[in-house]
Nucleic acid binder design. Structure first.
Length: 527
DNA sequence: AGCCTTTGACCAGCG
DNA sequence: TCGCTGGTCAAAGGC
């Protein structure tokens, strides 16, 4: 089946967060490829959201604002985030023993290796440490985040994750671009319906950088003036079996707001692989966020949405997969008649590197009641600061349940500051601002995150700070899971994968930055 | 008591 | 047919 893949990169901001976040690199102007195929039947959602490739290319590529989303298969149902909390990955999975490999405990050597978890260690840092600048320059592919089935591409696109505010920056993905046309004329990209083909779309977000780890971050901070953030790659993929309709939007809407209210996390830990799921971004966000409370909320919601879909999930397995550095956790929707499943890969640090949804929820999200109560975020000092929170620490609560976590706490309240990757193309920033709270999964440091109202401001006419959204069109052709699989940017770069691959990967991508949390997100279209 | 996570084992697909 | 790999099951235990 087709997948909707979303890559959400986490980035860590080093140094100033100001609006400067230039995501330049993100865009890959050259590669849009003819491949830009949006074959998914998601047209419904995406139609507006994605600009035609041509448009994108206008600027050498893609970088226009907005996300590009590829929809592969039937649009996933957008799960409204219910739980207010998004789980943050607090607990690294380092010593964790990974689920049984096929062989189970006694299993084959391979299994043992996999389970050993040892292997992971070596690999862990790779993706995260790379400085953004490098990445961008390198064109490193970013990791992705998959969009939950519950979320419709549209939702994602509009979600705060990608855009600073609910209003949503105009972006191909958001589908709002077309609306913004006037405002953002500068943007090359307009959202006319992008060429989307049914059946094969893929929507993905990739994490750009990899320096998610605090450790690395700390060091880099000093050294990297410009490269202020490192990102952690997160990919989210969704395989949707059915098409979503209004439901998605509704869900999206729900995600946007309610979530933030909840303070308490639900138990379920959706994305987390069981580790802690994300915790709602609380706290700090508020500090600065004041400026964009609303926007923040939205953003957070979006983030949450990505990270958590608002549904309740039960983890039924974990396993180290060969192609992935990190263990993959398997979740099922706890709803009686719902067969939706999702696979979540988390880094040892607890960052979600990839989420793959399979199926579509055939039921409404869990009652709001489950949403975590809002926890007042502890004021975090460094709201804007780059100091990355320790993965675990930052989060106040994580909202576990799949849905759970959808939102982080107070997301609305929390003001996590997000920057969307500006258009790399060098165009003006599109600001999107970020969301206050990001689901832990997506953003570890959510607590500290603040939201810039950039996006909102943008709409308002204010210039967004640092939020850049980049979109690129890519040639990407991969459809299968592997194809969708996200490689850490750093790794990719290091590996020296062909430029093309990276280009492809980056194509149709949009970047997002969260100054505080280092969350970088990239949406990528996969055909 | 219910729900969830953990994790070894089992199963199916593929080369 | 075998081995590898990914996905799922289910017992045990925790909250």
């Amino acid at each position: 089946m087709a997948f909707l893949i979303v890559y959400v990169p986490f980035a860590i901001w080093w140094g100033e967060m100001e609006g400067d976040i230039a995501m330049e690199e993100w865009k890959d102007s050259n590669h849009r490829g003819a491949d830009y195929l949006m074959t998914m039947p998601m047209q419904n959602f995406l139609a507006d959201a994605f600009p035609p490739p041509e448009l994108l290319e206008g600027e050498g590529g893609f970088e226009k604002h907005g996300l590009s989303v590829a929809v592969g298969s039937p649009p996933p149902t957008p799960p409204p985030p219910e739980d207010g909390c998004s789980p943050l990955p607090l607990t690294p999975q380092f010593g964790q023993k990974f689920g049984s490999g096929g062989g189970g405990g006694g299993g084959s050597l391979a299994d043992r290796r996999a389970r050993g978890g040892f292997s992971n260690v070596a690999r862990i840092s790779v993706p995260y440490n790379q400085p953004v600048a490098d990445v961008s320059s390198a064109g490193a592919p970013s990791p992705y985040v998959t969009i939950p089935p519950g979320l419709s591409p549209t939702t994602l696109l509009e979600s705060p994750v990608f855009f600073s505010n609910a209003m949503g920056q105009a972006s191909p993905t958001t589908g709002k671009l077309h609306m913004l046309g006037g405002a953002n004329d500068s943007n090359p990209i307009r959202f006319e319906s992008p060429p989307i083909e049914e059946g094969s779309g893929a929507f993905s977000f990739k994490p750009l950088n990899l320096a998610s780890s605090q450790y690395a971050a700390a060091e880099k901070t000093k050294s990297l003036p410009n490269n202020q953030h490192q990102s952690l790659p997160i990919s989210v993929k969704t395989e949707a079996t059915s098409i979503q309709t209004a439901q998605d939007e509704a869900a999206a809407n729900q995600l946007m707001q309610p979530q933030f209210n909840g303070g308490k996390r639900s138990r379920a830990a959706p994305d987390n692989g069981g580790d802690g799921e994300g915790q709602p971004v609380e706290g700090d966000a508020k500090a600065d966020s004041s400026s964009g409370a609303a926007a923040v909320a939205v953003v957070a919601a979006a983030a949450a949405a990505v990270a958590e879909d608002g549904y309740s999930w039960r983890k039924y397995g974990q396993k180290q997969v060969k192609h992935s550095e990190y263990p993959r956790s398997y979740y099922k929707c706890t709803h009686a008649s719902c067969a939706v499943k999702k696979k979540v890969e988390r880094s040892h640090e607890g960052h979600v590197t990839e989420i793959i949804y399979k199926g579509t929820h055939n039921h409404p999200k869990p009652a709001a009641s489950r949403r975590p109560p809002v926890h007042p975020p502890p004021p975090s000092p460094a709201t804007t600061t780059t100091t990355p929170l320790p993965p675990g620490d930052a989060q106040a609560d994580h909202a576990p349940d799949g849905g759970g976590g959808s939102t982080p706490v107070g997301a609305g309240q929390a003001g996590a500051e997000w920057h969307n990757g500006g258009v790399v193309g060098g165009e003006g920033l599109v600001d999107a601002t970020s969301s206050p709270s990001v689901p832990g999964e997506l953003c570890e440091s959510t607590a500290s995150m603040q939201v810039h109202e950039g996006a909102a401001a943008a709409q308002l006419g204010e210039s967004p700070e640092g939020v850049d959204v980049t979109s690129a069109v890519s040639d990407e052709v991969d459809r299968d899971d592997k194809a969708t699989h996200v490689l850490p940017l750093a790794a990719a770069a290091a590996d020296g994968e062909s430029d093309e691959l990276e280009r492809k990967r980056r194509s149709h991508t949009h970047q997002y930055h969260c100054p505080l949390c280092s969350f970088h997100g990239i949406a990528r279209e996969i055909v």
